[in-house]
């Protein structure tokens, strides 16, 4: 019954958010919102730019790349010198070079993969000045790229797709900061810790033991962690701890925040291209896949863990090992599905303790490219890449030059879309192959056999998709995994962003072809089905052999597939 009411509340709140936040974001990016103009204008003056100075896709991408380089170095330097910086009551030393390298890339790419325990590694200054800053910046970059790509569909014969500096400034100040501030207050009000006073020690009067509890500026970081589909928690145990996720309400709000912007961006898309039905078609494709995966994972976790059942223990309350009893099996499975399908990776449970089927649900959600609904911005620009492939296939079927929103999809667009859709699977599979073929790679997983393989596959799937969630059974803080993981995150992020911007630029230059009777419609059920088919077929064909070696074998070993 709890799950039923959670779903009803999610549908209502996300429905309203889709409509109104989606519409607001369109107004923000089209320059019709000015209530923070007094902040915007000085920033543009400082950067030597203005909303009128639009950029070609190459200049837009160049600005984004330079900005990313500065962000990388900024984060790396803070982590390396944190021992000499203020706000370090625990006197934590500098973070090691390899871990700083991995963490800088991780937060830049919106992955938030953490090869460290936050409370024992990062000072307050690092958490606030480096990591939380990136938790605002990286989703802003993702959303800006998605908007720039959408402008490619919305404009006619335009050499430009917007201004990168203006887009991220507007995204930060009009969208991310105000929403994160409001939800930060709610999280702190519910009991999430927010202090700069350092750790607290308590003596247990029953056995005389002294406990040291990690604290910090957690509550406000929690809001942007979920809203920006970041996932990097202040504490090692992430949203499973009451200090980050204190109540059922914060657990619900976490799920809501994860899904809010990625879903709402489809409305923004529809409004920008002049047809809400076009956005609704993408929303329908996202929702149908999300609902299917959520049902599969919830069903798996509501059942028994086959390994536990094989040991002769028969639970009647689902697979509760590794889960918070505060949240239960089904809400935890819903949180995990939302987290893995939105490029977030936050966790309110141990994913390593999920049933093989449940783990498969999480893995597969990432393997289909994180488009259901995907990360902030990345979900939209990635599903648009799949949509281009879908109309290309549709065009081949009916023997016409494919069109999407009146723009002819020709060889260049298909090449760019092909590259954008294949970068992630190639990265994940090649890096997993290298890891299982080397001693350093095989030293990572804590388990042998198919579960150990799943741990490696999950790690690179998570990093290659900029998700950041971890199975939990992998020792990732080694030079091999720090460096290989960082490479996977960089390729997985920019190997898709740059083709997406190129697509936006190429499409913006084109004129619109008048609609005719033979035009392949992209706002109906046929298109939704075709897009879902493309997403599932690309994901299935590329990853099925790897899945077969991991979770499927593991489930079969326990001789109980469902």
């Amino acid at each position: 019954m709890g799950l039923f009411f959670t779903l009803i509340a999610l549908v209502v709140t996300l429905g309203l958010t889709w409509r109104y936040l989606g519409s607001y974001m369109e107004a923000v990016f089209n320059g019709r919102v000015h209530w923070l103009g007094w902040i915007e204008r000085p920033i543009y003056r400082m950067l030597g730019t203005s909303p009128e100075q639009e950029q070609t896709w190459k200049r837009y991408a160049g600005a984004m790349i330079v900005f990313s380089f500065v962000s990388l170095v900024f984060t790396y330097v803070i982590l390396r010198i944190q021992g000499s910086l203020p706000l370090n009551p625990q006197r934590l030393p500098a973070v090691g070079p390899a871990l700083s390298f991995n963490t800088s890339v991780s937060f830049l790419t919106n992955t938030n993969w953490q090869n460290y325990g936050g409370e024992t590694t990062m000072s307050y200054f690092s958490q606030i000045g480096a990591l939380t800053v990136q938790q605002f910046v990286s989703p802003a970059v993702g959303i800006a790229v998605a908007i720039a790509m959408v402008r490619g569909f919305a404009r006619r014969k335009s050499p430009t797709i917007g201004n990168f500096w203006v887009d991220i400034t507007r995204c930060m100040f009009y969208i991310l900061l105000p929403i994160a501030f409001i939800f930060g207050i709610i999280f702190v009000g519910e009991g999430a810790v927010q202090t700069l006073s350092g750790t607290a020690s308590f003596t247990d009067v029953l056995n005389g033991a002294t406990q040291t509890l990690a604290r910090g500026p957690i509550g406000f970081m929690e809001a942007i962690k979920q809203l920006g589909t970041n996932g990097g928690g202040f504490l090692d145990q992430n949203s499973a701890t009451p200090f980050e996720n204190p109540t059922g309400l914060t657990n619900f709000l976490s799920i809501y925040l994860l899904l809010s912007i990625p879903f709402a961006l489809t409305y923004t898309f529809g409004k920008m291209v002049g047809s809400i039905k076009q956005g609704a078609a993408l929303l329908a494709a996202m929702l149908l896949i999300f609902a299917t995966f959520a049902a599969f994972t919830i069903n798996a976790e509501h059942g028994q863990n086959p390994a536990v059942a094989a040991a002769g223990i028969h639970s009647t309350v689902g697979n509760t090992e590794g889960k918070e009893t505060r949240f239960g099996d089904t809400s935890t499975a819903l949180f995990a599905t939302a987290s893995t399908q939105t490029s977030t990776g936050s966790a309110d449970a141990s994913y390593d303790s999920f049933t093989p089927d449940g783990g498969l649900g999480l893995l597969a959600g990432m393997m289909i490219g994180e488009v259901t609904p995907g990360g902030t911005g990345s979900g939209l620009y990635t599903i648009l890449i799949y949509a281009i492939i879908a109309v290309f296939i549709g065009g081949l079927m009916i023997g016409r030059t494919p069109e999407y929103l009146g723009k002819k999809i020709q060889a260049k667009e298909v090449k760019l879309a092909g590259l954008g859709s294949l970068v992630m699977p190639l990265t994940v599979l090649i890096f997993t192959g290298i890891a299982v073929s080397t001693v350093a790679g095989r030293a990572g997983p804590l388990n042998g056999g198919p579960h150990g393989f799943s741990e490696i596959l999950y790690a690179f799937t998570s990093q290659g998709n900029n998700n950041g969630s971890a199975f939990g059974g992998l020792s990732g803080n080694t030079p091999f995994y720090n460096i290989m993981g960082a490479l996977a995150m960089l390729i997985g992020r920019f190997g898709i962003i740059i083709p997406a911007l190129a697509l936006g630029g190429v499409l913006a230059e084109k004129d619109v072809v008048p609609e005719s009777l033979g035009t392949f419609r992209t706002d109906n059920g046929m298109f939704v089905g075709l897009t879902i088919g493309v997403i599932l077929i690309i994901g299935g064909l590329t990853f099925f052999p790897a899945i077969a070696l991991g979770p499927i074998v593991e489930q079969l070993v326990h001789a109980r597939f469902f």
Partner: peptide, 30 residues
Amino acid sequence: MEFMADFLSIVGFVAATLAMLGLVKVLDKV
């Protein structure tokens, strides 16, 4: 030792940035 690791990290960032700029150039010619 640590200095060398820091130096290699910055070199890695520069290399990644140049690779991205290179990808922009390549995709422009596709």
